[in-house]
């Protein structure tokens, strides 16, 4: 009995020496997973439209993104511009873009590839249609019109 209650021992301090290690581990995890936007936007950051009926894009590695919006640099002029990879491009270059995207992925996955269009809400439907027609020409039929998920739309 006295073995348990008798002696008044001081509570030993919890050893916190490994705390920095744990924190560093977490730190490295976040440093590695953080993606600092892989492409440099040449256009103004598109303000995506809001929608309620959105679907998440499941496989990120199978998504190729096309940006549409106004150019940051005035030398490209005003109006809607299309950005593929890092450069502002003309609609006619979309076919080559899709082919190069396909070349980077195994053939079996080609039919699951999705093109995501990130367009600014103020861009015109004509530009989007141009892109759609080009995509149809190269048989890239899966399309996602990027929008932000909201629960209710203000009319």
């Amino acid at each position: 009995m006295s073995k348990f209650g008798g002696k008044k021992k001081e509570m030993p301090a919890v050893n916190t020496a490994s705390l920095p290690d744990i924190v560093f581990m977490l730190l490295f995890f976040f440093m590695v997973t953080t993606t600092m936007r892989e492409t440099n936007l040449q256009i103004e950051n598109p303000r995506l439209p809001n929608a309620t009926e959105v679907k998440k894009l499941e496989k990120k590695s199978l998504v190729s993104t096309i940006y549409v919006g106004k150019a940051k640099d005035k030398k490209f002029g005003t109006g809607d511009k299309i950005q593929l990879n890092d450069k502002i491009a003309s609609p006619d270059m979309i076919a080559d873009f899709i082919y190069s995207e396909r070349a980077q992925r195994p053939e079996a996955e080609h039919k699951f590839m999705t093109t995501s269009i990130k367009a600014d809400i103020e861009s015109s439907v004509g530009t989007i249609t141009d892109i759609k027609l080009r995509l149809r020409d190269v048989n890239a039929l899966k399309l996602s019109l990027s929008s932000r998920k909201v629960s209710e739309i203000q009319q």
């Binding site: 924190v23 976040f30 953080t34 894009l57 149809r136 020409d137 890239a140 039929l141 399309l143 998920k149």
Partner: peptide
């Protein structure tokens, strides 16, 4: 110090999930 860095990365990380209205284009 490590905590400070950790919190910085926690805040800046955007696990941005691409979502959108999916459409299937008709074949040519």
């Amino acid at each position: 110090i490590a905590f400070l860095l950790l919190i910085f990365f926690l805040v800046t990380t955007t696990m941005d999930v691409d979502s959108g209205i999916s459409k299937k284009l008709s074949e040519k």
